[in-house]
């Protein structure tokens, strides 16, 4: 589950120029790790390529490497089955989570980094402790509570839950980011007469923008990929997010599993993540490894 991505910060010294002990000759290095990298990417690439086979060709024994004929049949079937609706759900839930998690993390990160209020240590500990207690183990009660509030069967409910998933990492990251900004920057702004919130927004946020990007990315992947909560907390097909729809595509009528349609559904679920990752990987990698917070 997404928990594996939760990375507490750790002090990292600035990367040194490297001395490069050549423990492997270049040719061997590139052969071995090039092939390995290919192996990592190949399943995803083949998934995308294969989605353009016809449904019949997709279910063929033995499998064909490339589509013998370019076909949009699987896509057509998915869209006919109303998949667009679930795509909209996933996009909505993800957008809501990214916005809420980012805003709340920035505010709280700023609060924890820059203010000395009572209960500060305790509250920070409470937020961090959620990383130690798995949400999977509170599902029954979380379900009852959301149900009481009318938030099951509601995308807003999922947004709230996913936001909480993303908050510990987000707040941790933003607190570290704000701590790293010299106090003088903020003081100068305040002397200039700016309010706290406007200082935060106009002066500090641009400085910690890489950290914000990391938090937003983390929230994006959390919300887009989550399965168990979505499986349990939504009842109506019209509210299912993509991962849940996949599970339902698997159990087709009378044992008639359409592999092409199922795996094309997987393309819908995987490709946005990969695309965003490829575009913004700098923030993602740096953020997870403690670089981005330094700005």
């Amino acid at each position: 589950m997404s928990t594996t991505l939760t990375v507490p910060r750790e002090r990292v010294a600035a990367p040194r120029r490297t001395l490069r002990p050549q423990w492997l000759p270049a040719a061997a290095f590139y052969t071995v790790f090039g092939l390995l990298a290919l192996l990592f990417v190949a399943p995803l690439a083949w998934l995308v390529v294969s989605s353009f086979k016809s449904s019949a060709e997709f279910a063929q024994t033995p499998p064909t490497l490339l589509p013998t004929r370019f076909s949009l049949e699987n896509y057509q079937r998915l869209l006919d089955a109303g998949l667009w609706r679930n795509v909209v759900n996933s996009v909505g839930v993800t957008a809501g989570t990214v916005l809420a998690a980012t805003v709340l993390s920035v505010l709280a990160g700023y609060g924890f980094a820059r203010f000395r209020f009572r209960l500060r240590g305790l509250l920070f500990l409470v937020i961090l402790s959620t990383m130690m207690i798995p949400f999977q183990s509170i599902i029954p009660s979380l379900y009852l509570i959301l149900d009481e509030l009318g938030l099951t069967n509601s995308l807003l409910g999922l947004v709230l839950v996913y936001t909480v998933f993303a908050l510990p990492f987000g707040i941790f990251t933003m607190r570290a980011a704000f701590t790293a900004v010299p106090a003088a920057v903020e003081e100068a702004a305040i002397v200039d007469g700016a309010g706290s919130l406007s200082t935060l927004w106009r002066v500090l946020v641009p400085i910690v923008a890489p950290g914000v990007a990391t938090v937003a990315l983390y929230a994006f992947f959390t919300a887009w990929n989550e399965f168990l909560a979505a499986l349990i907390f939504t009842t109506r097909q019209e509210q299912y997010t993509l991962p849940v729809v996949l599970a339902n595509l698997q159990t087709g009528a009378g044992g008639t599993l359409n592999w092409g349609v199922l795996e094309t559904g997987a393309v819908f679920a995987a490709v946005p993540c990969i695309a965003i990752f490829l575009i913004l990987q700098r923030y993602y990698v740096a953020g997870l490894t403690g670089g981005a917070v330094k700005g």
Partner: peptide
Amino acid sequence: VMPVVIGFAT
């Protein structure tokens, strides 16, 4: 790192 970003269900 690429596979890290897709979902476990996917």
